[in-house]
Design a binder for these strands. Structure first.
Lengths: 114, 114
DNA sequence: ATTTTATGTCGTAAACATACGTCATAATTT
DNA sequence: AAATTATGACGTATGTTTACGACATAAAAT
């Protein structure tokens, strides 16, 4: 395994990069956006919204699910997907914290510290 | 080209996913973090900080450069790298905007009007 | 002038990601 | 009971990323 080198890094950097990876394809961003608009919907709705084949969408959904950003609830023959807002907040916090550390000050109120 | 399908998506989603892709490896996050701590340094410093071979680091540096997140200034035999803060702010804004749209309200301060 | 140093370029193997077709299956509908 | 529908699982071709060794080159040090 060549990619095992990822394990050598700080676990916070790993989690942050994993979330970023989940966001690293426009189809996945479009899926998240669509889910936020309709709250919940089935796979078929998503694949008719987005210009990719159904199985490709399914693959992207599986990735978002394994990143923890969405969840699927099975109801008979359908699976209803929705956002996992806790994870989206965690992601936001991780990215904000990272960017705050390296550049964009995340807490512009705290002027009184080295 | 299979990946040409990316072109079918909204350009803002594309830019956002491209930035996220640049952040999708812990080595690249570690490089950005190191650069923020030392302001500027040469390739060799980075590859002794980070547990990967020099050419691998070079590859990651090239990716960060092509994403516009860092720049390298040649001085004799050395190349001094530093962060490009404008790009980091743009990245922050894009991600904040995206996450704000889908979940985490991005402007909790603005209760009235600009 | 020769050696050392810092970096970039090229090649490449292995692993992963992307995109989709086909098949299997289980719940509805007819 | 048979047909339809929605989805997941599997296979696979092509493309991309990751990781690194080997070589090239140009500046600096000796």
């Amino acid at each position: 395994m060549v990619q095992a080198k990822k394990q050598l890094f700080d676990s916070k950097l790993q989690r942050c990069s994993d979330y970023c990876k989940a966001l690293s394809h426009p189809a996945r961003l479009a899926i998240l956006k669509h889910l936020s608009e309709v709250q919940t919907c089935i796979t078929g709705d998503i694949s008719s919204e987005i210009p990719l084949g159904r199985t490709t969408i399914n693959q992207h959904l599986a990735e978002l699910k394994s990143a923890g950003l969405i969840q699927g609830n099975i109801a008979g023959v359908r699976t209803y997907y929705c956002l996992k807002t806790e994870a989206l907040f965690e992601l936001k916090n991780l990215i904000d914290e990272f960017l705050g550390q390296i550049c964009c000050n995340e807490k512009p109120k705290e002027m009184s510290n080295p």
